[in-house]
């Protein structure tokens, strides 16, 4: 079982950069390098892919492989006719967002203190490093014993998957803050609290966001795996149930839903990043 590639939200950035690339070449004349050209090529190849898939799948057993037309039927059924997808989606995402928010708050606080106080770093660093190294899915059975298979389990799992990347990156960001900017705060007679809010946290922001991105993908993997192996509810549970009954067409629906969720969360994160760090997306700052 390799859930990582399927659930990894890496799709969006790759796409975005590919589009970006085509903009660079737009200066060259040629239809393929215009915006319309790019989308024409994408749509044409997509249609070819779907048709080829349809043709191939119609010659194979429905239990093994589903044609796009059958998947479309399943999408309509699960989203409109009986609508079971929405319930599953709500279960999966609700706990994900709540646990993730908690992981960010706690992770940033712990990372901040570890970055500012060396003693605390020395004491906590081994635990953080080892727990970070442990794939959180290995903890699922233990967490089931402790928390049962309800909301608490989801929260705990998302929290554990998300908090360590946030701690480690926050700490790195805090330690990486420009000492020359710290001098400015010291000269201005800033208190420790003022140093943190005006220099350390804004300076560490890019690192914190890098940590949050990693945490998000880890948390998503954790939730889906737990749903597939232990809880059998939510989107992961849906996948397992459909697979057990060889309902291949239905099976694609939660998979597509996970992709959409992952891309949407990543895009939302990017928007938040742009909102919180407007300076970072303008001209690159040079030292002097």
């Amino acid at each position: 079982m390799t859930p990582k590639p399927a659930a990894h939200p890496g799709g969006a950035p790759v796409r975005a950069s590919a589009l970006h690339h085509s903009h660079h070449r737009a200066t060259r004349r040629g239809f393929l390098y215009t915006r319309t050209g790019v989308w024409t090529v994408r749509i044409v190849t997509f249609v070819i892919l779907i048709v080829a898939w349809e043709l191939y799948a119609s010659g194979v057993s429905r239990a093994l492989f589903a044609p796009p037309s059958a998947i479309l039927e399943s999408i309509i059924e699960l989203t409109i006719t009986d609508g079971t997808l929405w319930g599953a989606l709500a279960i999966s995402i609700g706990a994900l967002i709540a646990g993730f928010g908690l992981a960010i708050v706690v992770g940033v606080l712990i990372g901040l203190f570890m970055g500012r106080f060396r003693t605390l770093e020395y004491v906590l660093d081994p635990y953080v490093s080892f727990l970070y190294a442990l794939p959180s899915i290995a903890l699922i059975p233990l967490l089931v014993i402790w928390f049962g298979i309800d909301t608490e389990l989801r929260l705990a799992l998302v929290f554990i998957a998300g908090v360590f990347p946030v701690i480690i990156n926050t700490m790195a960001g805090v330690k990486n803050v420009d000492v020359e900017l710290l001098d400015v705060a010291r000269v201005a007679c800033a208190s420790e609290r003022q140093v943190v809010t005006t220099v350390v946290l804004p300076g560490a922001m890019p690192f914190i966001f890098a940590g949050i991105r990693v945490a998000l993908s880890q948390a998503l993997v954790g939730v889906i795996v737990a749903e597939m192996t232990a809880i059998i509810t939510g989107l992961g549970g849906m996948i397992i149930r459909f697979a057990n009954f060889f309902q291949t067409a239905n099976l694609f629906v939660p998979i597509l839903a996970i992709m959409v969720v992952s891309v949407a969360l990543t895009a939302g994160l990017k928007r938040l990043e742009r909102r919180l760090m407007p300076w970072d997306h303008r001209h690159a700052e040079e030292g002097a």
Binding site: D178, E180, L181, D183, V184, A185, V187, A188, C189, A190, Q194, T198, V199, P202, G203, M205, M277, W279, D280, E285, G287, A288
Partner: peptide
């Protein structure tokens, strides 16, 4: 102090940078 490498906060606008010392006070 005026620093050799300016040491402005990249996340603050010109006005917010200039007002920094007063903000701390």
């Amino acid at each position: 102090v005026v620093f050799q490498h300016f040491n402005l906060f990249p996340w603050r606008t010109t006005l917010a940078n200039a007002a920094y010392g007063l903000e701390i006070q």
